[in-house]
Design a protein around this nucleic acid. Structure first.
Length: 377
DNA sequence: TACGATT
């Protein structure tokens, strides 16, 4: 059993990102040790790396004064980064030269000097949405750099289409006040040439992710591995006469589509809870077909709805590559709608025809292809 | 909360 080494503390609140320090002496006003040349932050560690492995890897470079793999206070999950403080600054330098960029499983680790712990660098991370799909990370940095020094930035990409921007990203500034100014200056503004304004706000702390959300992440990762094999489901629905008419509204009101599931003739459908072998997520590869697929909008989900509901609803109709329940970030309750991506048009159309108007509990679902974002009149 | 997205 792994011991939880640390919880959220001052230095940890820097978040999973660090940066190099300029050379030169650091003036200490409180007499504390200057560790600016010995203390490193290590980012993008594999999820399953232990404190012991972490120490072993960095201890191979030289004598360590202290090191810490950062874990979530509640769940004990690794947050994917840690700190290493060497006795000798030369070893810190050597660790950067030797281990930065090292590939461990699916990750490429980043090793750099840690910034000194300070209140002013806390909560300096921004979440940006509504970015034009054509905007690169460089473009985004250029847009934000007028407000301060950028420590890290990232644009999220669609894993299925391998590299297409999802229009959302992150910017971490060196200082919180810089981040605040960027919000004031850029939130609701249209980047040059963009059709829509962007949203800029403080990012949520990933460590605040609920257990439910963590499980969802695991489900989705695992589910993608099944995307290819599930593809052959296409054929079998032509043999189910009742599907086109939708479920019988007079049948029992047992939860979640008993009718449709029974109609599946025992063909194994994907269900998150049946997934085993999630113990080792090492070496997960995205195999199988890629492509955008058909995005379906599902409205009138209950506040308690989760991703497994969508998998169960849509899985019987064919290849589902992605599901998403949209939640309020404060309450974590479903906002009443979600999205499902299906690979094949025919299957998506059949799912829509069957599930639109379907009664789920005491709600009637509205299901359609996703439309483009609404504009103000 | 009627068309998102949280490294």
């Amino acid at each position: 059993m792994v011991t939880i080494i640390s919880t959220m503390e001052t230095q940890v609140s820097n978040g999973p990102s660090g940066t190099s320090l300029p050379n030169g002496p650091v003036i200490s006003t409180n007499g504390s040790t200057d560790d600016s040349k010995t203390n490193l932050i290590v980012n993008y560690l594999p999820q399953n790396m232990t404190q012991e492995e972490f120490k072993s890897l960095f201890g191979s470079i030289g004598e360590i004064e202290s090191c810490k793999l950062v874990r979530d206070k509640i769940t004990g999950q690794s947050l994917g980064y840690g700190f290493v403080n060497y006795v000798d600054p030369n070893d810190a330098d050597k660790a950067i030269n030797t281990l930065n960029g090292l590939k461990l499983q699916t990750k490429t680790i980043k090793v750099s000097y840690a910034r000194p712990s300070s209140a002013s660098i806390r909560d300096a991370n921004l979440y940006v949405s509504g970015l034009p799909k054509t905007m690169s990370q460089k473009d985004m940095e250029q847009l934000f750099s007028q407000y301060g020094r950028i420590i890290t930035s990232r644009i999220l990409v669609d894993q299925v289409t391998a590299g297409i921007s999802r229009g959302v990203g992150f910017i971490r500034f060196d200082k919180r006040n810089e981040a605040e100014e960027a919000i004031k200056g850029l939130n609701g503004q249209k980047p040059l040439g963009a059709a829509e304004p962007i949203t800029v706000k403080f990012a949520n702390n990933p460590s605040q992710k609920t257990g439910q959300a963590l499980l969802t992440q695991l489900y989705q990762t695992a589910a993608r591995r099944y995307t290819g094999p599930l593809h052959h489901q296409t054929q079998r629905f032509s043999m189910i006469p009742s599907l086109g008419k939708g479920p019988d509204p007079n049948s029992s009101s047992k939860p979640i589509l008993d009718n449709l599931l029974n109609a599946s003739y025992g063909v194994k459908r994907f269900s998150p809870i049946t997934i085993d072998s999630m113990t080792s997520l090492a070496g997960v590869n995205l195999t199988g077909p890629t492509g955008a697929g058909w995005c379906i909008f599902v409205y009138n989900l209950s506040p308690e709805a989760d991703e497994s509901v969508l998998w169960q609803l849509f899985g019987p109709f064919g290849a589902v590559t992605n599901v998403k329940v949209i939640r309020d970030f404060t309450t974590n309750k479903c906002k009443g709608f979600g999205f499902v991506t299906m690979t094949n048009y025919d299957e998506a159309a059949m799912a829509i025809a069957s599930l639109n108007g379907y009664r789920l509990g005491d709600r009637v679902l509205q299901v359609s292809f996703k439309t483009s974002k609404q504009h103000k009149a």
